[in-house]
Each structure stands twice: as structure tokens, then as C-alpha cells.
Design a protein around this nucleic acid. Structure first.
Lengths: 206, 206
DNA sequence: AAATATACTGAACATTCGTGCAAAAGTCAA
DNA sequence: TTGACTTTTGCACGAATGTTCAGTATATTT
């Protein structure tokens, strides 16, 4: 599969990947040695330098745990994207501002496409009948306009909400998908209202 | 944004995140101190222990660079996985057999976890009220048993179906989540019936 | 067969790094 | 102000970690 790597290099590289996955930090020489049956730290150094030379990882001398995978070996299959997950949305601040960011979630490109995307966690059941449940993670395209019928993420008086978008002549209706909730009516240009984006997908852990 | 953190803790946490993002490894005490204006390693230790105590990160004593973000503060996805997408399920053949495979979909590990997982596309609206719509991609854990209340993928006379699993004394009820559909009753050991897996998550393009 | 390259071992060695006090400085309530 | 906390400094210590160098065994080349 990696025909240009020796067996030892293979196993070291694979150990580093597993270790990174598990601990979120690179292993020490001794840990690598113990896991791959190299009894001398210098043996590890030898293999690591070999891998570095072949471009599979990079090292910073004199620093502990300073091996990192390169593009070549960090497998991030294409078709996957990392989408920023927005936490609480601070009113006024730009959507993707540092303080709004809660983390990242991986998503398949068939779901989120290739345009700008952000993710947020759903609170409440107001869109239940649209198949959007409490706790779901929504993917949305940032935009300040929307078409009637779109499911939008909107900012209303400092609160983010997800609803069907139904503009009328003089006002905008934000329709829930749950009979136990009432539509929210916004007089155009009246209340502190803003569309943040249009929902394009979701993901749920059951 | 994190009201229970002091300013110092905030800035240290944020530095650790930036550092992780950039170098793929945690910083040392001295690096943290230098970046956040704490001139003693022991000062850093103090702040770090405070953060650890509040649950924002965890430390392993005696190890270098052994701070890691917890769920609470993590910034990068635990990981992404490629899940095999099952197309038509040929009766009799093993689930993951080559001829059943339609491709792969990317999924966030927070949704699919780390165990064996397969994916399949939903056909029909019989689980609509469980928030599972036509066209959704389901993630499921392969298993031949299930507990009452689980949503299962089951093979019934050569057809795969997704339903709530409700075993009774002498028979098994497969309950839809849509009043327009009727429960499917399977006499135990009678019809050609098999559980393929338990649904653990889903993903939808809107 | 001798020379060379590869893939290590083993044992110091030198930094880097986390730990452990003791003490100072800052904070806040009584 | 006093006293009780909290937060930070400073420094020495020892454990953890990468580096260096001298060898060894094995295979490959010449």
C-alpha cells in the first residue's frame, strides 16, 4: 500500500497515527520504541529520520514529542470537510468570530457541498415535524436572504432560532414545524432581526 | 462566554487551543507561560490545575506536553471516519460483501463512535415521526440482537426495513413511526427474518 | 573476500520539562 | 487593618526526553 516504506517504518507510522488519535499528542521516542519493538531510542530516531526524509512526517530537533504527520500521511480522505460548530451566538459579533466557535464537526461533502458552511446544535423541538430534533447538529449556508419555504437560522433579539421562512407583504412569519409552537411574526424592519443562514443538512446521534 | 473561568484561565485555554491547532501537539508549561505572561512554570501549573479541576482539560503527571482538552473544551473533532454505504442488500450474502457496497460516506466520530458501523439510505416515510425521512442516510451498528425500543435495520423476506423493535412473547412487532403504516408482525422463527443492526445516527441533505 | 550500506543496540550525556517548596503580592471580607 | 484566600514568583531538583557516539549484526555490492 505504501510501497516505499519498510515494514518497520510502516509500523512506526501506524503507531504514531494510533497514538495521536488516542491521546491528541505525539508519542515520545521511548513510547514508539516500546510499541514497535525497538529497544534503543536511537533506533527510533533512525526510523523517524527515515520517515521524515521520505516526507511522511516532520520533526523539530530538541523538542519533546515534536513529530507531526505531513499532508502525505495524515489521511483526510477527500469528501470530508470540517465544519465550524457555532456555540452561543453573541449578538453583534460576526457569526464565525472566535468567541462563537465551539469546535469542528466532520461532514460528508455530499451533505454540505463545497460552499461556506457552519454548524450549530439544535435546542428545542419546535421543528420536530420537519425531522429536526433537539440535539441535532444542523449544517447551514451563511446568507442574509432566503426564499419562502427555506428553513433558516435567524437571529431574533439576541437569540438564534431555526424556523421555516415565510415572508409576507409587510411582515415575516417564522413558522415552526410543531403544532405546540406559535409562529413568530416580525414586522419588516421593526424588531432586531437578521437571517444568519439557510439550513442545508443535519446530522444526529441517536 | 465561559463565565466560570478567570481571565487568565481563558487566555491559557485559548492559547492551548491555538497551539494545538497549529502544531498538533500540546505546549509545554514554559511555552504557555511565555505566551500568556506567566513568568513561573509553577504559575502555569497553578492555572492548568485550575482548568483541570473545572473540567476543561486533563493532565497526566510527570509526562511532557500531557495536557489535553476535554469534551467540554475540545476544538477538533475526535475524528472522522469513512463508513461503508450499503446499497441493495442481496439476500443471503454477508452484509458488508463487496456486491452490497455502494461507496463510503464520511461521518464524525461523535456521531458514529468507534465501533463497527455501516450506513444505508432510507426508503420511504414509515419512520417519519422518529425524524427519519426518505433519503436520509442512517448509521447502524451491525448486530443480530436488539433491545425493545431500539430502531433496527431488519431483513424481512429479502427486503431491508427500518422500524422500532418490539419483541413480545411469541412474536416480534416491527413498529413504524407513522400512523399511515401498520406494524409488521413476525412470528418468532417463522418468517425469513433477521436483524442486521441497530440505528445509531443519521445524516440528511435538505 | 572486502567494502559498503542498512538497521539497529547500549550507554552516556545534555536539555527540556514537570514538581515541590517557600515566599511575595494581590484580593476580598470582616 | 487584619486575616484568610487566591494568584504568582523564583529557584532548585529530579524525572522525562532527545542527542551523540561507539559498536554489532546482516545483507548487498564490488
Amino acid at each position: 500500500m505504501r510501497p516505499d516504506l519498510t515494514e518497520k517504518q510502516q509500523s512506526v507510522l501506524s503507531f504514531i497515527r494510533r497514538y495521536l488519535q488516542e491521546y491528541d499528542r505525539p508519542p515520545t521516542f521511548r513510547e514508539v520504541g516500546q510499541a514497535t519493538g525497538i529497544s534503543s531510542t536511537n533506533g527510533v530516531r533512525y526510523v523517524l529520520d527515515g520517515l521524515a526524509h521520505k516526507g511522511y512526517l516532520s520533526r523539530s530537533p530538541l523538542l519533546s514529542r515534536a513529530v507531526s504527520l505531513t499532508e502525505k500521511s495524515a489521511r483526510r480522505p477527500k469528501g470530508m470537510r470540517l465544519i465550524p460548530l457555532i456555540g452561543r451566538i453573541a449578538a453583534g459579533s460576526p457569526l464565525l468570530a472566535e468567541e462563537n466557535l465551539e469546535g469542528h464537526v466532520a461532514a460528508d461533502q455530499t451533505v454540505v457541498g463545497s460552499g461556506d458552511t457552519f454548524a450549530l446544535r439544535v435546542k428545542g423541538d419546535s421543528m420536530k415535524e420537519a425531522g429536526i430534533f433537539d440535539g441535532d447538529i444542523l449544517f447551514a449556508r451563511p446568507q442574509s436572504m432566503a426564499q419562502s419555504g427555506d428553513i433558516v437560522v435567524a437571529m431574533l433579539e439576541g437569540e438564534a432560532t431555526v424556523k421555516y421562512f415565510r415572508p409576507e407583504k409587510k411582515r415575516i412569519c417564522l413558522m415552526p414545524a410543531n403544532p405546540r409552537f406559535s409562529p413568530i411574526i416580525v414586522e419588516k424592519g421593526k424588531r432586531d432581526f437578521q437571517i444568519l443562514g439557510k439550513v442545508i443538512g443535519l446530522m444526529r446521534k441517536i
